[in-house]
Design a protein around this nucleic acid. Structure first.
Lengths: 205, 205
DNA sequence: TTGTTATAGTGAGCGCGTTCATATTGTAGG
DNA sequence: CCTACAATATGAACGCGCTCACTATAACAA
């Protein structure tokens, strides 16, 4: 049964499309893989030939959206922005592309992007994290910081970024102004840290 | 079958004890509720009479530990500490009590304390979050900040705290110095923010 | 046209957390 | 002592994500 590459891509695309619809309708957890499979006209087993897990299926949509967001960002940014402005633009570009997925993103991002170490690594999530962090590092170095931010700083950045995502998934303010305020605040804090502003002596433990 | 209150408390205590052992041995996800029940000498159904979910069972241990950590903190703190030092002591006190649970805490904290909104709220997790945040607010006001930190600042605090917990669950450095550095950094950043240090103008969106 | 074969498709089945109809049993009233 | 009752215990059963032994078929060689 060697079906054409085209037929395979059609199956894959149909699964992603139908899954997105059902996720948006019923939420991620309430959607069953049997439901996705039958709606896509396939058996459950076949679904798992295309995506190794329900989580990976959802994360594929996220990865795609964030990739487009990064492209948008690279297209839009100009030379005149300072570091904080550019980071803000980068993050906002990602959120804009994630927008259609927002209704069901909570559980997906929580499980796949969590900084807690997992046994069952979802490779999509790890890859997405690394790609995002690389982009941030590149933005920072473009602004003339000679040393890349250290591991501790990037760990803090990821915590803050997850907080922004979490807040955003639930932000009902008219234009997500609340989320914008949180992003703004978080970025300023982060920029200050990597700028090496003295924040006091270390504590004894 | 009206068993005595004492017998009920014994069952409850035995479940918690045996569950902690098996979690520590095999990890949270690999431990089955059937396993916990039979090791405790009960049927599965009975286990769920005592705890509404496996997650709540684990979070009960966390809540207990953090409660003791807070008591330790209140007992130890002196008047001479500054805000950052006191916050550090508070967080470190919690981690010291969580220490025995560390081998299996990752998935538990990830699911129960996550800032992502959940349908299936684990009440233990939400209560623990609120209790921790209240304690932080109390510490801050003790240090003469007339206005309580706003919602955005506390949201950022929780993101940073989760990042510390996540990092700590996996920190293999000799005395968790890496975690100490992260806590130190994060607290200084947070204190700076609530001190109202000017961090630059807001961005246009 | 007719095998042959690699590839994709299938759904019964597994182990999980959790539920619920039913069985069991400690206690109180006659 | 017995009976009735309500609190507690029980484990078969459910629906879930996911697997795997098996079936079906598209494409090629003869």
């Amino acid at each position: 049964m060697r079906i054409s590459e085209q037929a395979k891509q059609e199956n894959r695309a149909r699964i992603l499309e139908k899954a997105a619809e059902i996720f948006a309708d019923k939420g991620f957890d309430a959607t069953t893989t049997r439901d996705i499979a039958s709606t896509s006209g396939l058996a459950v087993g076949t679904l798992f030939n295309y995506f190794p897990s329900k989580e990976t299926l959802a994360m594929t949509m996220v990865t795609e959206a964030l990739g487009q967001g990064e492209e948008d960002f690279l297209r839009r940014r100009s030379e005149k922005e300072d570091l904080a402005e550019e980071l803000f633009l980068f993050i906002a570009s990602g959120l804009r592309r994630l927008r259609p997925l927002r209704p069901f993103l909570g559980p997906v991002l929580e499980r796949s992007l969590s900084p807690f170490p997992r046994k069952n690594i979802c490779p999509q999530g790890e890859a997405t994290r690394l790609k995002h962090l690389s982009a941030v590092q590149r933005i920072i170095s473009r602004h003339g910081f000679r040393d890349a931010p250290d591991f501790v700083a990037m760990t803090m950045y990821w915590s803050l970024y997850l907080g922004m995502l979490a807040f955003w998934t639930n932000d009902e303010s008219p234009n997500q102004e609340a989320t914008q305020a949180l992003i703004d605040y978080s970025i300023r804090m982060f920029v200050q840290v990597i700028s090496g502003v003295d924040t006091g002596a270390a504590h004894a433990v």
